[in-house]
């Protein structure tokens, strides 16, 4: 969208929509980082604060939907504008869902903080960084219309899936070792699953970027995903 609209008000609406999405994306990234920080550093207060942030994300979803509907009704957008607005409507669903998943992580963190640590969580921040970067890059790619970057995000999802599979196996050994580990291991397994889901949402975002820029739907085109063990 290099050129400006002849209609400045329409242009301003599209700029506003883009900004709203970025602010929402920024909040979500912050929630990912602080939910895992709360878990790793056993910081219940941070977990509570992070849960509170979710209201902003939910609110942003509603306001973005409103703005998109208003633009659709008033402007009858076509071509790249139409793709941008319909993708924005879908993008907020994934972003909002990431926010919810972060709340779930915080809830597990609060539960885990009641008990002694099961194992070192040294690998978690590294994984979180990858996932956070995936969301960040997907949004960057959306703003810049950079399909290359979007494709890289999609490619990185494999490492997230592999991480989940590995964590699952590890936690299984803790559970086999001692049944008293089961509840904590299950909590950590849930967190790992949540992180894996965020990776999937980031992949969705990246796929939307490709559609937004090229008008080409790359979803469900036979990409083999590493399936977690049953």
């Amino acid at each position: 969208m290099a050129r400006q609209h002849t209609d400045k008000e329409y242009e301003a609406e599209l700029v506003k929509l883009r900004e709203q999405l970025l602010v929402m994306g920024g909040r979500v990234e912050e929630m990912i980082a602080s939910s895992i920080k709360a878990l790793v550093e056993r910081d219940t207060e941070l977990a509570q604060k992070t849960i509170e942030l979710d209201a902003h994300v939910n609110n942003a979803e509603v306001r973005t939907d409103e703005l998109c509907l208003r633009i659709l009704a008033r402007r009858q957008p076509v071509a790249s504008d139409l793709r941008f607005i319909t993708m924005a409507l879908k993008l907020v669903v994934d972003l909002e869902r990431i926010g919810d998943v972060c709340v779930n992580i915080c809830e597990r963190a609060i539960e885990l903080n009641e008990e002694p640590p099961l194992k070192s969580l040294a690998d978690m921040p590294r994984m979180t960084e990858t996932i956070q970067a995936m969301v960040h890059d997907a949004l960057d790619a959306f703003v810049a219309g950079d399909t290359e970057k979007a494709q890289q995000v999609i490619a990185r999802d494999r490492s997230v899936d592999a991480y989940y599979a590995q964590t699952f196996r590890e936690l299984l050994t803790y559970m086999i070792e001692d049944p008293r580990n089961i509840s904590r291991a299950m909590c950590l397994q849930a967190v790992a699953k949540h992180l894996e889901r965020i990776g999937d949402h980031a992949t969705n975002l990246a796929e939307m970027v490709v559609f937004q820029v090229k008008g080409k739907d790359i979803r469900h085109t036979g990409r083999k995903k590493d399936k977690p063990p049953a």
């Binding site: 609209h5 957008p77 071509a79 504008d81």
Partner: peptide
């Protein structure tokens, strides 16, 4: 939805 030519894109989107 996905015009191939930039001029078409610019015209139909009002740019």
């Amino acid at each position: 939805t996905r015009p191939k030519n930039q001029k078409t894109e610019d015209y139909i989107t009002g740019r």
